[in-house]
Design a protein around this nucleic acid. Structure first.
Lengths: 208, 208
DNA sequence: TAGTTAACGAAACTGGAGTCCCGTTATGGC
DNA sequence: GCCATAACGGGACTCCAGTTTCGTTAACTA
């Protein structure tokens, strides 16, 4: 006898259950990239995934719930970061990775849709938050190395520097100001380095 | 005899038509702030606005269409910018204005919803784009003044500097990393100034 | 490898978002 | 002030997103 409140998919997570999840999440990504967050239909996703409509509703319930799970899945697939030996080089590599992702029609649309979904439900917002935490955590060490090399002042908030690289690219993506080209990526990296050198991202900021 | 294709509200825009628009846009803002973009119901907005459901559907049709019109309305109400005499002072004033707006529960939720809506339809995205263009245009002169004073190198892209101030605040709002407090606003302003001084926002960037 | 039951899937069902119809109100031009 | 008609509003209607039901399939355990 199972505990009544257990979520479907948690007791027998292997085999078919895992295949269904993978198939549905892939279909969800495709559908989000194509139709955007608003014009999304779970029945359409079920059709693409060759899965029963009932299954999608039972396991994920809502579009935002499905996106939250998609984000958990996306968070697990992290790309290895490159190391170039200088902070500017590392951050440019990071910026170009973000830029290429957001400029790609499918991926860019997907990220827009995922961000839109996150504004609509706390659980989805939390999943998005977690996704970016992981990405930032992945890249933060290159800032620490720069601190160790003396490129950037002691006490610089490494996480904040990484976020500073992404922020202008996402801002452009969402507000639609200008193209997301390599120049934009390089500019974001250079601005972050210049600001970090000047001590704009020091952790202890009691007086400036 | 009227031209069949004319949109409702364009032939007799005064009196009742204007009152209905104002009432519906206010109700739409309230509803967006409360329920978010996804859980929005045009019938609910009609009820709040004390207007017929049919009217809302006839004039705006969809949620994204209504948000697009709301953005046109928001773009018209611009706040006067303050002048402090230094670039850092001006940008801090700008940053704090943005931060206070986004940190405010109602306004913050409204902006999230509006951005979400803009990811779902081109017309709405264009309206959002236009809204930010106006805001950026409004604040760009303070960067030009800094260039004239010699605070910042000749050829600095004034618009890009203004966007650089907002970007990290919006990034925090959407990805949910940390609180949007005054320290975040000041940091955004300081980082923008430092990057601008270092020439990160020069227009001609053939080689760096 | 057999038994238990978690998880899936097809089909019927339902409620409410969005549409349509037509009578009423009030704007803008004279 | 008066007329033509743009724009509004109530109510009936439709259609499909989301739910419920129940029979089928296939994980996990021993």
């Amino acid at each position: 006898m199972a505990f009544e409140g257990a979520d479907p998919g948690t007791v027998r997570p292997g085999g078919r259950t895992a295949r269904v999840r993978a198939s549905v999440l892939r279909a969800a990504g495709d559908a989000l990239a194509e139709h955007g967050f608003a014009h999304l239909d779970l029945a359409d996703i079920a059709r693409r995934a060759e899965v029963g409509k009932t299954t999608v509703y039972r396991r994920w319930g809502t579009v935002t719930g499905l996106v939250a799970d998609l984000l958990l899945d996306m968070a697990e697939q992290s790309l290895p970061r490159t190391e170039t030996g200088s902070l500017l080089g590392d951050l440019k590599a990071n910026a170009r990775l973000v830029q290429r992702t957001l400029a790609d029609p499918r991926q860019g649309a997907l990220f827009k849709a995922v961000i839109a979904a996150a504004t609509c439900e706390a659980k989805t917002a939390q999943a998005l938050h977690r996704f970016y935490d992981i990405r930032v955590e992945e890249w933060a060490p290159c800032v620490q190395q720069a601190i160790d090399r003396g490129e950037v002042p002691e006490g610089t908030d490494a996480h904040e520097v990484i976020r500073a690289v992404s922020a202008p690219l996402y801002y452009r993506l969402l507000t639609g100001s200008g193209h997301l080209d390599e120049a934009a990526a390089d500019q974001a990296a250079e601005a972050a380095v210049a600001a970090a050198r000047a001590g704009a991202y020091l952790i202890d900021r009691s007086e400036c």
